[in-house]
């Protein structure tokens, strides 16, 4: 029972960590809160679903959804955030909330307001595990694997490559990074590409796990993502992953043992409030990537 709950929590936490990673990366480099990242989560799920229906290939639909949202991210930063850079961060915040609301309505107009079913039979190359007291569904394995691959890729890029070095330098001192010969436009664009494609992957995985997607599916993640990145120490990717796992675990454990005396999503926020009351700076210090 406990092991089962922990596994459930980690699966949920994996999706949360990808959801929060995009906004974490954006914060780390531009110091703005990008709520619209959760719009890429919903829109990415739709693109992923439509691609899957069209191609019947899960890997391909993941790639299409992620790349489409990545390109969308590049547009967003170029035409929305970069022109606002240097102005008050409140202006960017309000802009991103506006964009997020717009995206929800855009999906409603484009794909209709109804909930859409994600195909249940995914023909995964591996099957789940089922014993007497433990169930690991095959989609959970898919979620864990995808998350692990994406996070490891990100870690490798940031710490081991030349663009990663440019990225860290830019996050630490944008002005001096420019003067050292780093084309920060490319770095910021790359950052948004990855952040938005991660959000798309999270959206598609949620669609697969719960078998449905809807225009409002990004609403709760938008707020939860905020809670996670604050808890994880604003702009600290490792902190964000740990905070996401923690929220995932708390949600499932409380749900499993105490029962949902409140809506499931409120548990996460109550936990955040309690943690922030005890440690106002978040669980982790603000740290540069």
């Amino acid at each position: 029972m406990l092991l089962q709950q922990i596994i459930n929590g980690i699966v949920v936490g994996s999706v949360y960590s990808l959801t929060a990673m995009g906004a974490t990366l954006v914060y780390s480099i531009l110091r703005i809160l990008d709520i619209a990242n959760a719009g890429a989560y919903a829109l990415g799920a739709y693109v992923g679903l439509f691609s899957y229906v069209a191609t019947d290939n899960l890997l391909l639909s993941f790639l299409i959804g992620m790349i489409a949202m990545g390109i969308w991210g590049i547009f967003v930063q170029k035409f929305l955030y970069l022109p606002l850079l240097g102005k008050s961060p409140l202006i960017s915040l309000i802009t991103s909330i506006g964009l997020f609301i717009f995206l929800g309505d855009f999906i409603r107009l484009w794909a209709g307001p109804q909930i859409k079913d994600f195909p249940a039979d995914l023909k995964l190359p591996f099957s789940g595990i089922k014993t007497e007291n433990l169930t690991i569904m095959s989609v959970w394995i898919l979620v864990l694997l995808t998350t692990a691959i994406l996070l490891l890729t990100l870690w490798y890029l940031i710490t081991k490559t030349k663009i990663g070095l440019a990225w860290r330098a830019t996050a630490q001192d944008l002005e001096i990074a420019k003067a050292m010969g780093i084309n920060v436009n490319v770095v910021v664009a790359f950052n948004f590409f990855l952040g938005y494609s991660f959000a798309a992957a999270a959206g598609i995985m949620i669609g697969i796990m719960y078998n449905f997607i809807s225009p409002t599916m990004g609403d709760v993640p938008a707020y939860k993502m905020l809670a996670i990145i604050v808890l994880g120490g604003l702009g600290n990717p490792v902190g964000a992953v740990v905070a996401a796992m923690l929220i995932g675990l708390i949600e499932t454990l409380v749900g499993g043992y105490i029962g949902f005396f409140l809506p499931r999503d409120s548990i996460a926020f109550i936990a955040v409030i309690i943690i922030l009351l005890i440690k106002p700076q978040g669980l982790f210090v603000r740290k540069n990537i």
Binding site: K162, L165, A166, R168, A169, Q172, D173, I176, A177, M180, G181, I182, K287, N288, I289
Partner: peptide, 16 residues
């Protein structure tokens, strides 16, 4: 760059 090591700082200087 505060959170880069000495050698990483130097490599950024030679970025081009």
């Amino acid at each position: 760059f505060p959170d880069l090591s000495v050698v990483e700082n130097l490599k950024v200087g030679a970025y081009t």
